[in-house]
C-alpha cells in the first residue's frame, strides 16, 4: 500500500465517558496502536467530543474517567487529534475548553479523514 500518502490507523470515538465502555475501549486501541509504533489519528465525533471536557469526574463507584488516558496521548506521540466542529457547537463547547489540544474538522472534511487512513475503527 501507499504508506506515504496514507496514515495508518484512525480511531473514531463517538461516545462520552461513563455511559458505556466504548470511549475507554476505543482509547485503549489507540494507545496500543501507538505503543506498537503505528501512526494513529483520533477523531472525536458526535457525542465523542464530550470526552474532552475538563470537568470530568470519577463515576458512581469511583471508576476512573478517561481524562488520565487522554493526558497520556502526547506521551504516546498521538498528536493527530481531530474534533467534530458541528458537535462542539451542539454541546456548547469551544476548542480552548478541551482537556487536550485538538484541531477542528468540519462535517464535509470528515470523509477525507476516513479516506486518508488505511484502517478505520469506529467506537
Amino acid at each position: 500500500m501507499n504508506d506515504i500518502a496514507f496514515n495508518r490507523l484512525l480511531v473514531v470515538l463517538r461516545h462520552g465517558p461513563h455511559g458505556s465502555s466504548w470511549l475507554r475501549e476505543g482509547l485503549e486501541v489507540a494507545l496500543v496502536g501507538a505503543a506498537l509504533g503505528q501512526d494513529v489519528s483520533l477523531l472525536f465525533y458526535g457525542e465523542g467530543v464530550t470526552a474532552l471536557l475538563k470537568e470530568q469526574q470519577v463515576g458512581p463507584l469511583a471508576q476512573k474517567g478517561t481524562q488520565p488516558m487522554l493526558e497520556m496521548l502526547p506521551m504516546y506521540d498521538i498528536e493527530s487529534l481531530w474534533v467534530d466542529a458541528e458537535a462542539l457547537a451542539t454541546y456548547d463547547l469551544t476548542l480552548d475548553e478541551l482537556v487536550v489540544p485538538a484541531k477542528e474538522v468540519g462535517r464535509h472534511e470528515v470523509s477525507d479523514l476516513f479516506q486518508r487512513h488505511r484502517l478505520v475503527l469506529n467506537f
Partner: peptide
Amino acid sequence: LGQLIDAGL
C-alpha cells in the same frame, strides 16, 4: 489488542 491492529493492517 495489538493482535487486532495487526489483523486490521
